[in-house]
């Protein structure tokens, strides 16, 4: 056990999970928390409520495709959507460093306003703190969100043959942040994919029996989400390497940086595990939605002697996709 909290504990990989289990789960034990979903879901009167929270520390706070405010709304709204809930109300807390430019704060908040309008949610309560210069790096935002699960969606047991879908190109947010943080002087067709997943709620409603589970692959990327799914089942995962959608510019930048897009954060994508027989129908419905037009089936769960995630390429080569142990990636969300 580490005596001090290190940056690696915030990476979203193995060390983060360990810290959460050893300190937070150990002390805050209850069935909702230990369900380990992106949101907690519980009955309140006649309604099935989902409730989630997230904090945002991204650097830089303004990046190609968005800013910390956009992330703060999308991140929390999306966690509700992947729990099957229709997002309704958000809270937000700001901790601001003394000397932060007012213009920047206004821009961030205006973006949050616009995202809330798009998502049809309201920020109904909030808090503001200002701290001394040097005690915080510019700004930190927390958002919590509440939604109602109207469809009655709940997670289902994963079976062999279940297909894995992703709603668009991977690794775009993480890569965009990395380019900024490593001061790479490149121009190209890349930007954060930060976006709302609310348009996909109609698919969740329509196919709630067929969708076994869903997640948005933020910190740690698609690979980390797939490992989380695999922990809940006896089956391993076989991915189809050439089907994994990666924009050419994202592929190129990751090659330069020596990173793998499978581990880079997405902030506007959904990973779904779908019953084999319904996978094509779910695929077509997602593709009919503008923000889901690049949805692909990228793999499936399968019976294996040694449970693992591997990716098979077109000429028969295979590689293991291990769990993210550590990374030196900059903060991305």
């Amino acid at each position: 056990m580490d005596e001090i909290i290190k940056l690696i504990h915030g990476d979203g990989g193995k060390h983060t999970s360990q810290l959460i289990e050893e300190i937070f789960y150990k002390n805050f034990q209850n069935k909702y928390l230990l369900d380990q979903g992106d949101a907690a879901t519980f009955q309140l009167g006649n309604e099935l409520i989902s409730y989630t929270t997230d904090s945002f520390v991204v650097k830089p706070i303004f990046f190609r495709g968005g800013n910390i405010g956009k992330l703060a709304v999308c991140g929390t709204v999306n966690d509700l959507v992947v729990s099957g809930a229709t997002p309704l109300y958000l809270s937000t807390g700001f901790i601001i460093e003394e000397g932060f430019e007012r213009k920047k704060l206004e821009k961030i908040v205006e973006t949050m306003r616009d995202m809330c309008t798009q998502a049809n949610v309201s920020i109904v309560t909030g808090d503001t703190k200002v701290v001394e210069k040097g005690s915080l790096d510019e700004i930190v935002i927390n958002t919590s969100g509440v939604g109602v699960n109207y469809s009655g969606y709940k997670k289902n047991k994963i079976d062999a043959g279940d297909k894995i879908l992703i709603t668009g190109g991977i690794g775009e947010h993480g890569t965009t942040i990395a380019v900024d943080r490593y001061h790479m002087k490149i121009s190209g067709d890349y930007q954060s994919d930060c976006a709302l997943l609310t348009p996909f709620l109609s698919v969740v409603n329509e196919y709630k029996e067929a969708i076994k589970c869903m997640r948005d692959p933020t910190r740690g990327g698609v690979a980390t989400v797939l490992h989380e799914f695999m922990k809940t089942t006896e089956y391993g995962i076989c991915l189809y390497e050439e089907e994994i959608p990666i924009k050419p510019s994202i592929r190129a930048v990751n090659k330069l940086l020596g990173f793998d897009p499978l581990y880079m954060a997405c902030e506007g994508r959904m990973v779904l595990v779908v019953k084999r027989e319904e996978a094509d129908k779910v695929l077509r419905m997602l593709q009919s939605i503008e923000s889901g037009k690049d949805t692909c089936i990228i793999g499936e769960f399968a019976q294996m002697e040694d449970k693992m995630i591997y990716s098979r390429n077109s000429f028969g080569g295979k590689r293991i996709i291990p769990e993210l142990v550590s990374s030196i990636l900059p903060r991305i969300c």
Partner: peptide, 9 residues
């Protein structure tokens, strides 16, 4: 070589 599984192939 490792990424494409060439060694085994």
């Amino acid at each position: 070589i490792k990424k494409y599984g060439i060694g085994e192939l």
